[in-house]
Structure formats: C-alpha cells, structure tokens
Design a protein around this nucleic acid. Structure first.
Lengths: 193, 193
DNA sequence: GTCAACTAACTATGTTCATAGTTAGGCTGT
DNA sequence: ACAGCCTAACTATGAACATAGTTAGTTGAC
C-alpha cells in the first residue's frame, strides 16, 4: 500500500507522465521506498481507476503519445489521510540478522566477508543520503528545488526540514549497522582463533 | 528464500513436527524473521520435496497423526552454503521514513502520535531482545538451552556469542530509531508552532 | 541516413507474504 | 457429557515484489 502513497507524494507537487514519475521517483522518494517500473505503471492505472489521479493524454512528436497524471482532490485527501494515520508495524524480517545469529556455521572468512559487505553497503547508502541532504540544503537537486518553488513560502522550512530529518534518520541507522558489523568483525576474530 | 534457511536453522538442532516448528519458531528465529503458520507448513512440504528434510509420520493418540521433520545431509549442506554466501542487499522500503519525509502534510498531533508510536514500538521490541539476551546468558529459555546442550562443548561460546551479537545489533538499531523519533518530536514542536 | 541512446509504456511469470478461515483430534475440568 | 483450550495441519485469496522481457516512437551524433 505504501507505493500508492509514495506516488501520491510525488504527484502533489506537479503532474507527471508515467515515465516522468519513474525518473523522479528514483531521485527522490525512491531513496526511502524503492519500486521498479513494472510496479509503478500498473499502480498508476489502478490509482486512476480509483479516482486518485486523472490521466490526460498528450501527443508526443508525430505519432507518440503519453499520459500525464494529475492528482485529484480525492487523491490529495487520501494522501492527507495517510499521513495523519499512525502506521501499524509489521514484525522484523531481516536476512542479515538471521544469518548473523547462525554465524557459527560459517567459514570465518565468509563471515568476515559478510560483515565487510554490510559495512560497504551501508556506507554507500549513507553517502547517498548525505548527498540528498546537501542537495536539499543548497537546492542543487532540480526535483527538490521544483517542489520547494511551487510551495508557499511558509511551508518551505517544513518541507526541507522533514526531508533532512528523514535522511538523517536513515544515515544514523546506517551508522548503527556499520558499527555493529565492525563489532562483528572483532567478534569473529575472537571466536574463530 | 530466507524463510527456508530460518527453518533449516531451527531443524539443525533437533527434528521437529510442523507444529513444533511453529512454536519454536516464535520463540527463537521468529525474533529476527517473522512468519505465519500459513507460510511455514507449505514451505516444510516444499523442503521435503526438495530433499532438504525427511518427514517421518508418527501416530498421536488413537487416531491422530503428525509428521516429524528431520534435516537431511543435503539440508545441512544447503544451510552451510547459505551462511557462507554473502547476501545481496535489496533497496530500502520503509513506510515510516517515507511518511516522515512528508510530515508537513500531517496535523501536528498526528505527527507527534506517529513518532510516539515509533518510540513505543521500538522500545517494546528492544525489551524483548534484551530478554532474549538475558535468557541466552542464564540459559532460562528451554529452546536455546536445548540447542546449547546438543552442541559440542567447543561450539557453545560461538553459538551463544553470535546470537547475543545479533540481538545486540537489533537493540542498537531500535535505540537509533527511538533517538531519531525523539528528535522528530522536537522538530515538530519547532516547525509547527 | 542510420545507429545508438533515450523516452514511453506495457506484459508475463513466479515468489513471498498477509489475512483469514477450516477441519479435526486430544486433554482437562466441571 | 460437554465446554473450552490446545495440538496439528491445511486452504483460499489477494496484494506486493522481483525479474525479465517486449514494443515502439523520438532525438541527436557521426
């Protein structure tokens, strides 16, 4: 269900074609909610069917066509309802921690490689989020800049404030993961000597 | 795919019936990988079909029957192969951070309620993991104690060491989430005044 | 003028997971 | 005798996701 709201979030700032949604998605909401095109296109159609979006056909070149999706008042309402509802939490399902719990079965080097991969993955993710924060602060990301420009002046501090807060949270979590994996490496050295 | 390995992990220490698996699951592996019975029963059957498990029929009372699953050498091998393979990471899909990014749309009180729910959820989870750690340390959990008893003496430090490490990681992550949500509450107060 | 790269969008298949319900025997207490 | 709970296991349905492939028009560079 979250995909729907991720898409609504994108479309609150401007109408977009399916392909635009795809591209914008990858550079903004996609950082907190990943989705492939094969999920996005059908979902946009379902949302149109449900009255949350209105699709307007446009010509493109001589024969080409595309459909631009506008959010409807119902769509805005649905989005607002979602942000105002407390989420319910689904229980953990975490492959790395599952594996860590049974690391006594692994070759020491494989165990180390896993921890190093964990560090590498989260370092790279943390760096990307940091870049998003920087882009938010200096407005160098065109998609984020556009969102800020269309918004009333009074809301700008909120819009970028909550986004920075979000990415900072992701970074902190990534750092906790990195710290944990480092301790994992030490533990492997200690137990597998 | 992880469910399969979570089940193999359980069955490495002793043969269990489907129902036993279910119960044990909830009190051990289930803390890092949640799964409902409707997923576990069919998966056990698939694993038997794939030769990872061998099911042995047992009578139960006068007319009742149950099937006890034993892990096969292929099952052990598959599990070992899994722990020795570095996982690949799938991209984030996180409803709370998605929502946090668009909190400017929420009523201040709804935003606060969301952050408080986040704190409550992760506090309760952290507490449960802490209990698991305590149970591992004093061997008061029968399932964990059984696993330790059947293992060779030399492996015991590893078995409980990696499990404690795992739960500590979950707790640290939960603490990072709580910290983040607290900062969220402060931010809401600041921005929504 | 044609080839590559991009825009635009859709389809197909299989797995995983959530949610909810069903069937049936066994055990314990009143 | 039967209620209520536990053990045991299975079924059904739909949503969500991953992975991979397909079709077709447009634009720009050489």
């Amino acid at each position: 269900m979250s995909l729907r709201y991720a898409l609504l979030a994108l479309l609150t700032s401007q109408p977009l074609t399916g392909y635009d949604v795809l591209k914008h998605f990858e550079q903004s909401v996609g950082y907190v909610w990943h989705a492939p095109d094969s999920q996005i296109y059908p979902e946009l159609r379902r949302m149109e069917k449900d009255g949350l979006l209105r699709g307007v056909e446009e010509t493109w070149g001589k024969k080409g066509k595309k459909k631009r999706y506008h959010i409807t008042p119902e769509g805005v309402e649905a989005f607002r309802a979602w942000v105002n509802t407390t989420l319910d939490y689904t229980r953990e399902r975490d492959p790395i921690h599952l594996k860590a719990a049974y690391l006594e079965w692994a070759e020491p080097d494989a165990a180390r490689a896993q921890m190093q991969a964990h560090i590498a993955y989260h370092s790279s993710r943390a760096q990307q989020w940091q870049e998003m924060i920087d882009a938010l602060k200096d407005r160098s990301n065109p998609i984020l800049a556009a969102r800020l420009e269309t918004a009333p002046d009074a809301d700008r501090a909120k819009i970028s404030g909550y986004k920075i807060f979000t990415y900072e949270g992701m970074i902190e979590r990534a750092k906790a993961e990195i710290e944990w994996a480092r301790r994992g490496l030490e533990l492997i050295d200690k137990l597998e000597s």
